[in-house]
């Protein structure tokens, strides 16, 4: 049994690379997801994920199917949409999520249009859902670099980010430059989605960010606990997803997201904190 799980990784070097990259992403993306959940911006990941697509497609159409061209284009498009939505929310009457909904629908349509017009090897399904075979050394370095930058950044901006998330008005009143931390944080979200799109696809990259974060709510009652738990859940999902992907011949992105989804459902039902089981267990109440 154990051998059956390890064997594919021993046999295929591309799987080992995907595993290393996946674990790197599992370390950095879910903590961002935890903050997105607390900021009530759970859907922003989807929006930014869609926003990356036209950038990736345009990069490929103009400069060929290289990692640098596609990632650079995706990063640029993601940052532009992030800033545009932020500005639209600040200047207009719409909330940020409403502006993002507008931007991402346009981005997705634009992305699909550019893909159909770009080079023939550009495969829409592969862009949306990823391919484990696409993880070459350069992509692996991008993932590892992203994880490093994200974790170091997060450690640095942890305090202002937590305060800004809990009580933005307080930080503003203290002259704490709330917008800076917010934009820094969103830039990390974009960076993680871009780093993940080759292996997971622009759509599925969001899954690795959000599902473990949502599931972590059922593991720990504190923010730091949830961040740690989300990483653990994501690492399990990557491991399980890669094995399922090889054994059942399912694309990697959906396989990993399905595993994360299964963990989420399991924890929702039987997690130690606020789950269906924890709520229904009638333990005698304490004397004081």
């Amino acid at each position: 049994m154990m051998m059956g799980l390890i064997e594919p990784f021993l046999e295929f070097s591309f799987l080992r690379r995907a595993l290393a990259g996946g674990i790197a992403l599992a370390l950095s993306a879910p903590p961002l997801g935890v903050f997105l959940v607390q900021r009530r911006l759970s859907l922003i990941g989807d929006a930014l994920g869609h926003a990356i697509l036209p950038g990736v497609a345009l990069g490929a159409a103009l400069f060929g199917l290289s990692l640098a061209a596609m990632s650079g284009g995706g990063l640029l498009a993601g940052l532009v949409v992030m800033l545009a939505a932020g500005l639209a929310a600040r200047g207009g009457a719409l909330r940020e999520d409403a502006s993002l909904a507008g931007f991402y629908l346009v981005s997705l349509a634009l992305g699909v249009a550019i893909v159909s017009w770009g080079p023939a090897q550009l495969d829409l399904l592969e862009l949306l859902f990823g391919s484990v075979l696409a993880v070459d050394d350069a992509a692996l370095l991008l993932m590892a670099g992203t994880a490093t930058v994200t974790l170091v950044s997060l450690a640095m901006i942890w305090r202002p980010l937590v305060i800004e998330t809990f009580d933005a008005g307080f930080l503003r009143a203290q002259g704490g430059r709330g917008a800076l931390w917010h934009l820094w944080f969103l830039a990390l979200v974009v960076l993680n989605l871009v780093a993940a799109f080759q292996a997971l696809g622009t759509l599925m990259a969001v899954g690795l960010m959000m599902l473990p974060a949502v599931a972590a709510r059922f593991v720990s009652p504190t923010l730091s606990g949830q961040v740690v738990a989300s990483v653990g859940i994501a690492v399990l999902a990557v491991l399980g997803g890669l094995i399922v992907s090889v054994r059942a011949d399912v694309p990697t992105g959906p396989a990993i997201v399905l595993c994360a989804g299964a963990l989420w459902l399991a924890l929702l039902l039987a997690g130690p904190e606020a789950s269906v089981l924890a709520r229904s267990l009638r333990r005698p109440h304490l004397a004081r």
Binding site: Q38, I163, F166, F170, Q174, S220, P221, T222, G225
Partner: peptide, 15 residues
Amino acid sequence: FPLPCAEVAAMGMWA
């Protein structure tokens, strides 16, 4: 919000 009391109080030390 998933924060302990001490951390909310500690925000007062921002300045």
